[in-house]
Design a protein around this nucleic acid. Structure first.
Lengths: 222, 222
DNA sequence: TATCTCCGGATTGTTGACAATCTTCACAGG
DNA sequence: CCTGTGAAGATTGTCAACAATCCGGAGATA
């Protein structure tokens, strides 16, 4: 059998894994707002499985920190107060600066920056069109791409959770207005800093971007 | 009811949580070496519970990345090749530099550095006594303390997993000899950098320390 | 001999039922 | 009016049995 046939391993996935993904999506999109109790029977019925696999999925989310477990009481979607939001952005900064530096020093800087420029362009387009939802999506795609390019499974796994939490915040504050142009400009500066290979500038740009984003969120939440 | 009574909430904990902790300990200490299959029935019997809670604990470890799941095949303790070890230290650097900077800029720098100095002193004592096991323990306690002092739940949770993986590596390479004095000196330099409040120096010290530790590990594993 | 088929044993995946716990509400007593 | 008691209802925690899947080897066939 040729190994050059280009076949990929069959993407079989456990039920609990599939459920976890859907629940995460629900938490992210606001279908399961912060604080809601997650009823096992109700969710199990909705997913069409028994409580076993569903409970396994729940434990994953608990480990991820997206869900809080109270013994004999139930599971609740975690709520984010201001201190938590600050912690979230502190951690995002840690992960993303490291990722960006890894990209900047990797052999694939050129195609990497190219892809990031494309993401930034998508943001600009959404901003120009005044489509705030598309802008948010493009924003997320940018950061997701950035960390993916670093090629670090650990940074990526941690970042995935952080992005869910970020989106949770933004969903909760939906309707508040941010200046799109600022956001677009900040992302462009990050890309160019990566391209330049200047570590100090790079770190500074990301830290500033995170600080700005955090300020926008905190301001909106009061 | 006074809220200043100093009582803490009763530390009730779910069974799956307790099992998770024990399994993690086992993986860390080498009782469950990398690559071993984790038999559900055997482990459930050992813990004296049924397979339900045990499976929930397993899913937590999968989410943590310490255990790999093959559908209909079983669960295996994750193995770390050289690339994984590099990724591990990359991520540790990201977390610990951020934590150290947070400590350096916090209001509690003074007591913080004091506690870290105590940890470093414990390392020095173990090194002087030639007790390599105690040295490793003190080493871990130092890094654990460093991240705890940052007061960031996210950094702490991520770091916990990373330290388990680190210990896994070191357990696997048990018997190899490292120069204790170097290690002690590196940690002392980190503490003093925190005390000095010089961010650049701080980051440099931690990055160098991680690079050294990584080199020691990689060298020993070949 | 090489290959294919099939079967037995073992392990995981899933389920429904049972036990334990918590919450809520009504109600009696001070 | 407030406090304590108790039972009903609902929810979570746990278990043991059943179903599905995988692995290895014996045996048949060319």
């Amino acid at each position: 059998m040729s190994s050059a046939s280009g076949f990929q391993p069959v993407p079989r996935e456990s039920t609990s894994s599939l459920i976890t993904r859907q629940l995460r999506e629900g938490i992210m999109r606001g279908a399961l707002p912060a604080g809601t109790q997650l009823s096992e029977v109700a969710l199990a019925a909705e997913f069409g499985v028994s409580r076993g696999p569903l409970r396994e999925a729940m434990q994953r989310l608990v480990q991820e920190g997206l869900v809080r477990s109270e013994l004999n009481r139930g599971l609740f979607v975690k709520e984010l107060d201001e201190a938590e939001i600050r912690d979230l952005y502190l951690t995002r900064t840690a992960i993303e600066t490291t990722a960006a530096r890894a990209v900047a020093h990797s052999e694939a800087v050129i195609p990497g920056t190219e892809r990031l420029r494309a993401r930034a362009a998508a943001m600009a387009a959404a901003a120009a069109a005044g489509d705030l939802e598309a802008l948010a999506d493009a924003d997320f795609a940018f950061h997701e791409e950035l960390v993916s390019l670093a090629g670090s499974p650990r940074l990526h796994r941690v970042h995935e959770t952080l992005m869910v939490e970020t989106r949770m915040c933004m969903t909760a504050l939906q309707g508040t207005y941010f200046d799109p142009e600022d956001q677009v400009a900040e992302h462009s500066r990050i890309v160019e800093a990566i391209a330049s290979g200047d570590d100090a500038a790079l770190v500074r740009e990301i830290e500033e971007h995170m600080q700005e984003a955090l300020d926008r969120l905190v301001r909106a939440s009061r």
